[in-house]
Design a protein around this nucleic acid. Structure first.
Lengths: 212, 212
DNA sequence: GTGTGTGAACGACTTCACAGCC
DNA sequence: GGCTGTGAAGTCGTTCACACAC
């Protein structure tokens, strides 16, 4: 299963994620089919792109009709690995972490927070949602006992690489990094960066060079 | 000034932003020059990429030596439009917005929060950092009087397009969208998306298809 | 010798365009 | 008639490799 001849591009996966979101909406609205054109308009891409993206994984559509909404929704969940539940820890008991944990879609999509960590004595031991903030020193052992799949880093940039090294050593294979710094990992570890500052600077650049 | 023959790629701008971050560090450490190789290693890219990125804007380096750290730092700030201060409003007085406003780099880079908005009666009127949460209904007029450059959207996906339309009508030309939905804007408006759910799903995909 | 600047080669993603099927 | 699936063509970004400057 999920044997791909080609490596799937990052951009494709991102779009699949977006298609899924809109398909869920359509499904709830009772739509039974959706054309590549409709999906494209919703997700801000082109019909050809939608068809190409989906074609990497099979032929889900019916010519002359479009794609079966409910079926494709299920299929996309499988493809994205959302048919199962992922065990997530959040490192850094600050605003970002709690914004994430609070986010409805987070649980809805099968991500479960199984631990929250911080290095500040003031925060350790405090209640945090359903969980209790634990000492970051416990990470190495907890990663194994909690069977952690994904670690979310919401800590200062200077600490990021150090913590990542510990996580990787402990066996974590997926990291979502909110710290505004590049982290280095072995090839078998997947890392995604969310860098608000960078996006903001992208806007700054756009505003500055708008007149060209 | 800033007359570019070519359109600068988004990926290039993102890397410039990263180079700047590391150059600032190097500058503070007292480093006077940095090679493309050094910058590449810090930012997780290649030396050729660094040189190419910078070459779009001029010849800053000295052959055999590298790039002058302080000078390049200043130059990159100018290029990215960070030499000036940008006036930012945050829409949605929740965790995400406050995480952003709290972030040190935010102010440091010249982004100033000039207003915070929400539609919840419970939140309107409350203090929020230095500001007071205002009614989202005041947006249209405030955008002009406050001379807003950038609007940050930290509201539910369903409300995003509606608010964006209002913002665009009021003259905002740069939007940072944290809502997990695509928003449609005229071409003269710059939009960046930060979608945590999408990144997380990218990791889910990677974990699911790791064995390939 | 060391490291930049850059055209040329390469590779990857996107768009086109049309055959095929409903 | 409408819409998918997909090779082919096109476009855009990255990597190479080397002349050139310090």
């Amino acid at each position: 299963m999920t044997v791909h001849a080609k490596r799937i591009a990052d951009s494709t996966v991102r779009r699949l994620s977006m298609y899924l979101r809109y398909l869920e909406d359509l499904d709830q609205e009772g739509q039974t089919t959706a054309s590549s054109d409709a999906l494209a308009q919703l997700s801000g891409t082109t019909p050809a792109q939608v068809r190409k993206d989906l074609s990497f994984f099979g032929s889900f559509g019916k010519r002359g009709l479009g794609y079966p909404v409910h079926e494709l929704t299920t299929r996309l969940r499988e493809i994205l690995g959302l048919a199962q539940s992922w065990r997530v820890i959040i490192i850094g008991a600050g605003k970002i972490g709690s914004a994430l944990a609070e986010y409805r879609g987070f649980r809805q999509r099968g991500f479960t927070v199984v631990g929250v960590y911080d290095n500040s004595p003031e925060k350790i031991g405090r209640a945090w949602g359903d969980a209790t903030v634990r000492d970051i020193a416990a990470l190495a052992t907890d990663v194994r006992t909690l069977a952690v799949d994904i670690a979310v880093l919401a800590i200062p940039a200077d600490d990021a690489q150090h913590v990542v090294d510990d996580l990787v050593a402990a066996g974590v294979r997926a990291i979502l990094n909110f710290a505004p710094s590049q982290v280095h990992v072995p090839t078998h570890v997947a890392v995604k960066h969310v860098n608000m500052a960078m996006e903001l600077e992208g806007l700054s650049f756009a505003l500055t060079n708008r007149g060209d």
